[in-house]
Every structure is written in structure tokens, then in C-alpha cells.
Computed example of a mutant assay.
Amino acid sequence: MEIRLAQKGDLPQIVGLCKQHAEYEQAEYSTKDKEKLLSKAIFGTSPSLKCLVVAEGNTIVGYATFMQQFSTWDVGFYLYLDCLFLTEETRGKGLGTALMEKIKEYSKIENCTEIQWQTPDFNEKAIRFYQKNGGISKKKERFFMKV
């Protein structure tokens, strides 16, 4: 399997994996316009998102998306890991750890001293995975507001 930057042709499969990811996290997800919007975010003139994929031949079996953000408290940049997802049959084979290592490489290139992410508190497998890979939990409530 190969870990590489996403290509435009990967978008239909990435959207399918996003849907599986949402189902896994017990969230609703609509595929409407997602390819077009992700294309703009990843490949547009001012891309705001980077996306790594795990490819097995022509099949995408996992992805990770991340972006650089700024911390007022630390007065510096950090990398925010928005999503990391692998299909059920590819979990436990070291691919998640390999994705995290690639993300660490990008964070160093971008002069980020920290990577931040979140996972639902019921996702015990992910919590164990992140702890095994050096993640430290910070208890906070995440809020959102539709506008």
C-alpha cells in the first residue's frame, strides 16, 4: 500500500470514505456537492486543506486531512488533523501509524510544533491508537453553531 497526496481522481472514493467515517462516528453525512467542495479546498487556487490517501492499487482505503492553524495562546502555528480514517479491513496493519508519521513530517515542514485533533469519547479504539502514538488527551467540550 502507498501513502501519497490525494489526486483529483481520488475524490469520489474519498467522499465515499467520508460517508463511512461519518457512519462509524454515528454522524449524519450528505454526499451532495462534496466532490466539488473538496476539490476547491484541496486543489483550488488557495487550498486550505491537505489530504493524504492510502492507496492499494487504484483503491483508496484510507485518508487523512489536515490544515495549518494559529494558536493565539502559543503565538505559533499548529497542524490540525481534521480526519483520519481507514477501512475496517485495513486497520491494525500499521497504516494509521504511517499516516501519523507523514503528518508529523508535514508539520515540521510547515514549522508547526504541535498537532491537534479530536475523536468522539466513545471511539475507544481510536483513543487507544492515539495514546499509543504519543497523543495526549485534553478534556474540552466541542461546540458548533450553524450559520
Rank of each mutant, 00 (worst) to 15 (best):
M1G: 08
M1C: 10
M1A: 09
E2Q: 12
A6Q: 01
G9H: 12
G9A: 09
L11W: 00
P12H: 06
I14N: 01
V15Q: 01
V15S: 04
Q20S: 13
E23P: 03
E23W: 11
E23I: 10
E25G: 06
K36V: 15
K36M: 10
A41D: 04
F43S: 07
G44M: 07
T45M: 10
P47N: 09
P47E: 09
S48Y: 09
C51R: 01
V53W: 00
V54D: 01
V61N: 07
V61W: 02
A64V: 07
Q69R: 09
F70R: 00
T72P: 00
Y78L: 06
Y78S: 08
D82R: 01
L95I: 12
L99G: 00
E101R: 10
I103P: 00
K104T: 09
E110W: 03
C112K: 00
T113H: 07
E114N: 10
Q118W: 09
Q118L: 11
T119M: 14
T119Y: 07
T119L: 09
P120Q: 15
D121T: 14
F122M: 13
F122R: 12
R128D: 13
R128N: 08
F129T: 02
N133R: 08
N133D: 13
G134Q: 08
G135W: 02
G135A: 08
I136N: 07
S137Q: 15
K138M: 14
K139P: 01
K140C: 10
K146E: 08
K146G: 14
V147M: 10
